[in-house]
Amino acid sequence: MGEAVPDNGVSVSDTQNLMFSETVPDDPEFMSSDLTQAPPADGSSVDLIRETAELVEAFKDIDNKQEFLTLLHILIGSYQRFNTDLDLAPVFDRVVALSKEKLVFPVTLADLQSNRA
């Protein structure tokens, strides 16, 4: 076998020559909507509220409450791993409020508390 030759029109660059821009959401209108408005909380609670709002948006046309709760439990667990003092009350309140507006199934505070790790 000989030396590898790139296809025509393909070039190789050094990593220091690569330029990156800041990320932009796929749908800027969605990101500025009321789904991302969160009550005042610490930084990780705000991030978690934003991500739970995205999960709610993803399930707005899916009628599978158990799968939603399972994914929400995994999401919350990933935050709790790094912040054991995470205040989940505003997160749960936001999920219940968003579920009434956006989901085809109801989510209650009892559902969320029973899914805690």
Rank of each mutant, 00 (worst) to 15 (best):
A89V: 11
A58Y: 06
R50C: 12
F92Y: 14
P90R: 04
T15V: 13
L55F: 10
T23P: 01
A4W: 13
A117Q: 05
V12Q: 11
P39Q: 14
I76F: 10
E22D: 06
N17I: 10
D14F: 09
M19H: 13
G9A: 11
R94V: 02
D85I: 05
F59Q: 08
Q113E: 13
L109K: 06
S99I: 00
D93A: 13
P90Y: 07
V107A: 03
D42V: 15
S99H: 00
Q113H: 00
L75D: 03
N64H: 09
V46T: 12
L71C: 01
R94N: 02
L86I: 11
S32Y: 13
S32F: 12
D87P: 01
K100N: 04
A4Y: 12
V5G: 06
R94F: 06
F59Y: 15
P40K: 09
I76W: 01
V107G: 07
Q66W: 10
P6Q: 04
V10L: 12
D47L: 15
A117F: 07
T70D: 04
E51G: 08
N17G: 13
I62D: 07
S78R: 09
S11Y: 07
A53N: 02
Q66M: 10
V96N: 02
D42L: 15
I74A: 12
D27N: 11
S45Y: 00
T15M: 10
L48N: 07
D111P: 00
D87G: 09
T70W: 12
V56W: 08
I76P: 00
A89R: 03
T108C: 03
A89N: 03
L112P: 00
L72N: 11
D87L: 09
L88G: 03
K65L: 07
V95F: 04
Q16N: 14
